[in-house]
Amino acid sequence: MKQAGGWLWRLSLANLLFLYGPIALLILFSFNASRLSATWQGWTWQWYRALWVNQALLDATANSLWVAAVSTVLALFLGVGLAVGLDSLSGRRQRQIEQAMLLPLVIPEVMMGVSLLLFFVLLQIPLSLMTVMMGHALFNVPVVVIIVRARLKKLDPRLMEVAADLGATYWNTLRYVTIPLLRPAILGAGLMAFTISLDDFIVTYFTAGPGATTLPLKVYSMIKSGMSPEINALSALFVIVSMCLIGLSLLVQRR
């Protein structure tokens, strides 16, 4: 037993190293004074300073934040509504829709990107930041539904009954009982959706119009002209911000 435990411990350590080693290396090299990525020449902050004055990057960041914010609000609105509404359906219907909700999570993102592009072209909606927001809201709705429903299932159904018993209408029960009790899940789902939107490349790539460059798109175009320490610095920031957001999301959900 003891030996097996030791082995498992080593295995998971190797696993973690494999997962986080490259990221750690990326962060380390973002402080490298050398322009050539592969050799170490001492510490510097200069690449971070260079980011700060790069107007194109700042614009892309603003776009990214804007897209993430709007698509998150949209996804929350649709997702929470759907999650709560599903409760008034019969058990079988509920499961069917819940399972259908999982599908977008496993469909290859390229397919989703292509189909969205086709959709927008057919409806003659010009590609812009707006279409990116709609695309992001689309893949974030299932995320919101899944997180909110998990919480909803843990709520005592008698709380809703007692509200009705005390004279509350359906909408008042939602407003004063259900939604306040779901708040940690809604907040957590929002942060999760925000992060996913911020990090998304593929759907954005297909649905972004001219001028609608988000940060991941910008990083990609910068890489085309070769790796640079600035990209390291930018990516390092990205990773850290994303991790913080996900950590925060998990934290608020635990309440």
Binding site: L159, V162, A164, D165, L166, G167, A168, V177, P180, L181
Partner: peptide
């Protein structure tokens, strides 16, 4: 007549107090 319109109130076994 739905529960919210009945002249009765129910005290649940688990009390079902609103935790928030």
């Amino acid at each position: 007549v739905p529960p919210n319109r009945r002249p009765v109130n129910l005290v649940f076994q688990s009390y079902a107090l609103f935790p928030h």
